[in-house]
C-alpha cells in the first residue's frame, strides 16, 4: 500500500485529503503514479495531466519525476508552495 496525501488547493478540487492505494505493476515512479491517477478522469485527469504544476513529496522529501515510489511510502501531491 502507498499512502497518498492531497494538500491545499489540490485537496479541494480532488475532494479528498488522502487515501491508501495498491499500485499496479509497472507503476514505480512519481511520473507513473501521476499518470495512473490521471486515468480516473474528471478533476484527476485535469489536475494531474503532464505539464500541470503539481509538486510531489515522497516520504517528506521533494521528489522528481523519476523518484521511485514503493509500497509503504507516503506520497504527497500539492500545488507549488506559497509560504513565507
Amino acid at each position: 500500500m502507498v499512502r497518498l496525501v492531497y494538500l491545499a488547493r489540490l485537496r479541494d478540487v480532488l475532494g479528498t485529503a488522502g487515501e491508501s492505494v495498491t499500485l499496479p505493476g509497472g507503476v514505480g515512479t512519481v511520473t507513473g503514479l501521476l499518470a495512473w491517477l490521471a486515468q480516473r478522469g474528471g478533476a484527476w485527469a485535469q489536475e494531474l495531466a503532464p505539464g500541470r504544476a503539481v509538486r510531489v513529496a515522497v516520504n517528506h522529501d521533494l521528489a522528481r519525476p523519476d523518484t521511485p515510489v514503493r509500497a509503504g511510502d507516503e506520497v504527497a501531491l500539492f500545488p507549488p508552495v506559497t509560504g513565507g
Binding site: L7, A8, R9, A57, L62, A76, F78, P79, P80, V81, T82, G83, G84
Partner: peptide
C-alpha cells in the same frame, strides 16, 4: 523557504 517549504496561503 518560499519555493521549497510546504506552506500554502488561502
Amino acid at each position: 523557504l518560499k519555493t521549497r517549504a510546504p506552506f500554502w496561503k488561502k
